[in-house]
Design a protein around this nucleic acid. Structure first.
Lengths: 114, 114
DNA sequence: AAATGTGTTGACATTCAACTCAACTTTATG
DNA sequence: CATAAAGTTGAGTTGAATGTCAACACATTT
């Protein structure tokens, strides 16, 4: 499964939206040359928060790009950091090395809670 | 609820085990002066992995100290980073701002999976 | 062709966490 | 008290993450 890189994916999305690197960079608050490097995979993907801003400007959900990087937005990270119960859960989950299906099942359980 | 600081807690545990700062530092692989600063809250708590080593040397579970810092050991972090399904779960969980009890319930579900 | 807009590249900058090192002070022991 | 062990403090270091800046190249429009 030849997976596209983060840079390739970003470049495609940006172009499909008819946005230039400079426009995107300005909206996001970084230098346009940085966007270029990221798109050509000359730099690692941006920080999670920057990715979120990029996706907002481009009008696409950030989930896909975030998932490619293995990073988590600050709010998510903070929510976990401040919550020992959540950490406990994660440590348990890690020792079990859950499958995707199992994570899915848990996500279902999650939704049932409300 | 007057919560003890990380440093205070560590100092107490270390002393209760009759271990000196230098012994602990050597076992963990850091400078003893660093231990001193951490214990006196002149520096933020060590990296998660260092905390784990400290707890191993002191013969106590790392859960409590880790929870105080809001940090996660490398293996846990990696497991999440590499797993989009886990990230999805966490983003959902964050938007819901779960209670401790709810996290507990999920941890129970988790155990049922095996 | 000239000007303008867009993209690429190399070198360098900034910030922060997580420490180390050397010097000093305090505490315990013979 | 003398000595050594234990602890404290200020200044500096290191590496990784996350970019910036200036210069250039290419592409498009006028």
């Amino acid at each position: 499964m030849e997976t596209k890189t983060f840079g390739q994916t970003l470049k495609e999305i940006r172009r499909s939206k008819g946005v230039t690197q400079r426009q995107l960079a300005t909206a996001v608050g970084v230098d346009f040359s940085y966007i270029s490097k990221v798109e050509n995979d000359r730099m690692p993907p941006p920080a999670a928060d920057t990715i979120v801003k990029i996706c907002e400007k481009l009008g696409v959900p950030s989930d896909e790009l975030l998932a490619m990087t293995g990073k988590m937005p600050t709010p998510v990270k903070e929510a976990i950091s401040e919550n020992p119960a959540a950490q406990q859960f994660l440590r348990e989950a890690q020792t079990m090395t859950l499958t995707d299906d199992e994570w899915g099942a848990l996500t279902q359980q999650l939704k049932k809670l409300r």
